[in-house]
Simulated scan of single mutants.
Amino acid sequence: MKRVDVTYVLLYDSKEENILMVKNKGAHSSYYTLPGGAVEDGETLEEAAIREVKEETGLNVELEGIYAVSEAFMEERGHHAIFFTFKGRITGGELSIAYPEEIEETTWMDATTAKQYAYVPTAEVDGVIENHSVVPYILRGKVIHKTLS
Score class of each variant (00 low, 15 high):
Ser29Val: 10
Tyr8Phe: 08
Thr7His: 01
Lys146Met: 12
Ala123His: 11
Met74Asn: 14
Glu75Asn: 14
His79Asn: 15
Glu101Leu: 08
Pro121Ser: 03
Gly92Tyr: 06
Gly78Met: 09
Asp13Ser: 10
Gly93Pro: 10
Glu105Arg: 08
Thr33Gly: 02
Glu64His: 02
Ile66Arg: 00
Gly26Pro: 11
Glu102Tyr: 10
Tyr67Ser: 12
Tyr12His: 10
Asn60Val: 06
Pro136Val: 10
Val9Gly: 01
Ala48Arg: 01
Phe83Leu: 03
Pro136Gly: 12
Lys25Pro: 06
Glu43Trp: 04
Gln116Asp: 07
Phe83Ala: 00
Ile97Met: 07
Phe86Arg: 00
Leu148Trp: 07
His28Trp: 07
Ala118Pro: 00
Gly58Gln: 07
Glu62Ala: 12
Pro121Thr: 02
Lys142Asn: 15
Thr44Tyr: 05
Asp41Gln: 08
Lys115Trp: 00
His28Ala: 11
Asp126Met: 05
Glu124Ser: 08
Tyr137Cys: 09
Val125Thr: 07
Ser70His: 04
Glu17Gly: 07
Glu17Asn: 13
Lys23Asp: 04
Glu40Ser: 14
Tyr32Ile: 06
Lys115Leu: 10
Ala123Gln: 11
Tyr67His: 09
Glu75Cys: 13
Arg77Ser: 12
Lys115Pro: 01
Val143Cys: 07
Ile138Arg: 06
Gln116Val: 03
Gly141Cys: 08
His80Val: 14
Ala98His: 12
Thr57Met: 04
Glu64Ser: 06
